Amino acid sequence: MKKLKVSLLLLLAFILLVGCSSGASTSGEAGEDSKNVTINFGVTPWTSTIPPTKVAKLLLEDMGYTVKETNADAGGVYTGLSKGDLDVFMDSWLPVMHANYMEQFGDKLEDTAVSYTDGELGWVIPTYVEGIESVEDLKGKEDLFGGKVYGIEEGAGMSVTSKKMIEELGLDFEYVASSEGGMLAQAQRIMAKEEPVLFLGWRPHPMFANYDLKVLPSPEGYFDTSEVHVITNNELKDKAPEAYELLSNWSMNVSDIEKMIVEIEDNNRDAEEVAQEWIDNHPDEVKAIKGE
């Protein structure tokens, strides 16, 4: 009888051991792609970068990934992507604005998805400034704007294009590089006096909701309407295939992004809170991104 009891106990212990091992194995297989994988997003100092980055971050974290954000200017982001230090950039303006970076680093990067197709950008002026309808109309009227174009950081594609346009079109302007916030603060001071001012603008951006502005059409090859793309480094597909799959399905409406920017910038709301609200209120879009 004792031998029978011992045999039964051993059998029970074996069954429990096998069951636990099986469960652990199943759990490990289910999280194999996302466990112990960190995805690093490059984040430029532009308001348009924040909403899609935060939405992607929350969705990937929900899948089990660890997500980091690294702040850098555009040149730093593309360099980081090319070296594998960064994995994803949600705000690549193509085919023109960031073409120089894609030409330099393109063999190490992947154009993964188009977020939206109506990224308007260029030099902007307040609508109360009369007689200027295009960049060509600025020739000979540089003094009206104090001989200055207010712009963003030196490494940005828009800065590179602006300097090229000034030189090639023979415009007598000084390009004043600053942060996005510094540029807007200077423009706001001048617009408060209803004086002419020339600065960089792009959509999506709350400046178009807060002020009456117009983008000046530029000659072909400078500031063309852009598509905004999701760029990843070449290693992400193998490093985190499920994350890559989600990013390859990426799409967000430009008007949604502008509304989110206003909530974050003007209403001082937490960016991740606003991103979560978008996720909660757009189940169909989220399902499409997840490929469901």
Rank of each mutant, 00 (worst) to 15 (best):
K3V: 00
L12R: 05
L16P: 04
V18N: 15
V18L: 13
S25P: 02
T26E: 10
G31H: 01
E32N: 01
N36K: 00
T38W: 01
V43E: 04
T44G: 10
S48F: 13
T49D: 14
P52L: 12
L58V: 09
L60V: 01
E61S: 00
E61P: 06
G75M: 01
T79C: 00
G80Q: 09
G84H: 11
D87R: 05
V88L: 10
M90P: 12
W93Q: 12
W93F: 15
L94S: 12
Y101V: 07
A113W: 08
T117S: 14
V124Y: 04
P126H: 07
Y128F: 14
V129R: 01
I132C: 04
K139A: 12
Y150S: 03
G151N: 04
E153H: 06
A156T: 02
V160W: 02
K163V: 02
M165L: 15
E168C: 01
G170F: 03
Y175C: 10
V176E: 10
S178W: 00
S179Y: 05
E180Q: 14
A185Y: 06
A192W: 04
K193P: 04
L213S: 06
D224C: 11
V228E: 11
V228R: 13
H229G: 06
K237A: 13
D238V: 01
A243L: 06
A243M: 02
L247Q: 02
N253H: 04
D256R: 08
V262Q: 03
E263W: 05
D266E: 12
D270I: 06
Q276R: 15
E277Q: 15
I279M: 05
N281Y: 02
N281A: 15
P283W: 08
K287E: 13
K290G: 06
